[in-house]
Simulated scan of single mutants.
Amino acid sequence: MLHHVELWVPDLPRAAGEWGWLFDRLGWTPYQHWERGRSWRHGETYVVVEQSPAMSGECHDRMRPGLNHLAFHAGSRDHVDALARAAPTHGWQPLFADRYPHAGGPDHHAAYLANSDGFEVELVAA
C-alpha cells in the first residue's frame, strides 16, 4: 500500500487551492498544515504539497523523466463528469478533451486534468 506522495510546488497558496479543491471533492481530508506545506489524507495514504527552499527548478514537466501523473478512484461516472466540468474554475485544465471520457480506452471512463504547475491527474470512474 502506498504510504505518501510529496509534490514540490513553486507557489504554495495556488497549489493548496487547486489540490485542496480536488481532494475535498474526492473525499480526502486535510491532514497537516505548516508554513511551507499542506497535506491531505485518505485512509492511511496522504499527499503533500510543499514549497521547499531546496527546489532546483521552477516548474514540473510531466513529459520529462519522473512523475507523469497520479490516478485516483473518483466514484461514479456522473461524479467524474461533474469534476471534469468544474475543474477549469479551480485551476485544472482538461487534457485529451477530444477523447473525453474514453481517452484511456473504450472501457475506461476517466477525466485527465493538469493544474497550473503542470501536474496531471487521472480521475477514474468506478
Rank of each mutant, 00 (worst) to 15 (best):
P88L: 10
L70H: 04
A103E: 10
Y100C: 05
G105E: 09
V48H: 09
A103Q: 09
H4E: 05
P13Q: 13
H73Q: 05
L83P: 03
D11Y: 12
Y46C: 12
G27K: 02
H33L: 15
L95R: 12
R85K: 08
R38C: 06
L70C: 11
D107G: 12
H3W: 15
H4T: 09
A103S: 12
H79L: 06
G105C: 05
W19G: 05
G104I: 04
L7S: 09
Q32Y: 10
S52A: 15
M63Y: 08
Q51L: 07
G104A: 06
A71V: 04
W28L: 02
G27E: 04
N68C: 12
E50A: 11
W8S: 08
S56T: 14
R14P: 04
A54I: 02
P10L: 07
P101V: 06
P101Y: 05
D107K: 10
W34T: 14
A54N: 12
A86I: 06
A97Y: 01
G66H: 11
G20C: 02
W8E: 03
A97V: 03
R25W: 05
E50S: 09
C59I: 13
F72S: 00
L22K: 01
L67V: 08
A71I: 06
R62E: 08
R62A: 11
L123D: 01
R38E: 09
A126F: 07
A86W: 00
G27H: 08
L22T: 05
L12I: 10
Y112D: 00
